[in-house]
């Protein structure tokens, strides 16, 4: 596997990149802090990545960096067959309601720019005859829920976009994988109270690596969230108005 990875520096991205490195994948890291990417590259190298783990800058808030970064990844690895995006930002509903600039940044990063990045990736993967595009959305996009209205809306849009890509391009060899994490204990959620089924990044990484191997279109991680969201999706609005979930 020749993987360009946006977001491998932290959280589930770090765990997934390690999991893939230990399976011998070749990796190229995209991110916004070169010095920090160098440290992640060293870590992944020692976790077993093939070849040299390269890296270059790519900022989710700067779309002009997307195309060139993917080209650099492809040049460094002599091709590209997988693109993974775990980069994203989170803020609580209260913080977002109080700060329109933050809301604009989050909606732009988690929806518009993630989609723009995927468009650049899609073109390159299709031109190379196909491959895998694996993107982290969220269970927050499954239903309009009080604690994640704005973040959830961005993720809902992202999930729909990824679903459409899969429908249109799978026959041309592009497999799109939508990852829908539930609550996972990373720096992103460090200040929040974990619910009973909180997941660990390493466990999420194992199930996503399996999904990439198989080409599954959708992954809930931890798996229990598939059931939880099945229930939540089917709750009547009257109930959703009353509960805090």
């Amino acid at each position: 596997m020749k993987i360009a990875f946006l977001g491998a520096s932290k959280g589930m991205g770090r765990a997934l990149a390690r999991q893939l490195a230990s399976r011998g994948a070749q990796l190229f890291l995209l991110g916004r802090d070169l010095e920090d990417l160098g440290r992640s590259a060293a870590d992944l190298q020692l976790h077993g990545a093939s070849g040299t783990v390269g890296f270059c800058t790519c900022d989710l808030l700067q779309p002009p960096t997307f195309g060139p970064a993917l080209d650099q990844a492809s040049a460094a690895m002599n091709g590209l067959d997988t693109v993974i995006v775990t980069a994203g930002i989170f803020a609580t509903q209260e913080e977002l309601e109080a700060d329109p600039a933050l809301t604009a940044r989050l909606l732009t990063a988690d929806f518009t720019n993630t989609v723009l990045f995927c468009e650049e990736a899609r073109k390159r993967l299709l031109a190379a005859g196909g491959g895998t595009l694996c993107v982290f959305s969220s269970v927050a996009g499954e239903r309009g829920r009080k604690p994640v209205i704005l973040y959830g809306a961005a993720k809902a849009g992202l999930s729909r976009y990824l679903e459409g890509l899969d429908h249109k391009f799978r026959s041309q060899g592009l497999r799109t994988i939508t990852v829908k994490p539930g609550f996972v204990k990373t720096g992103m959620t460090a200040g929040l109270k974990p619910p009973p089924f909180a997941g660990e990044p390493d466990a999420v990484a194992r199930s996503v690596a399996r999904a990439i191997e198989r080409g599954s279109a959708e992954v809930y991680a931890p798996g229990i969230w598939r059931l939880i969201m099945l229930v939540i999706r089917n709750l009547p609005r009257g109930v959703m108005r009353r509960i805090g979930f």
């Binding site: 900022d59 808030l61 700067q62 002009p64 732009t108 518009t112």
Partner: peptide, 17 residues
């Protein structure tokens, strides 16, 4: 395309006790 300044939040938000 929308370009925004990448505002870095290096210091973590205060976490609840």
């Amino acid at each position: 395309m929308t370009s925004l300044p990448s505002k870095d939040i290096t210091l973590p938000k205060p976490v609840p006790e």
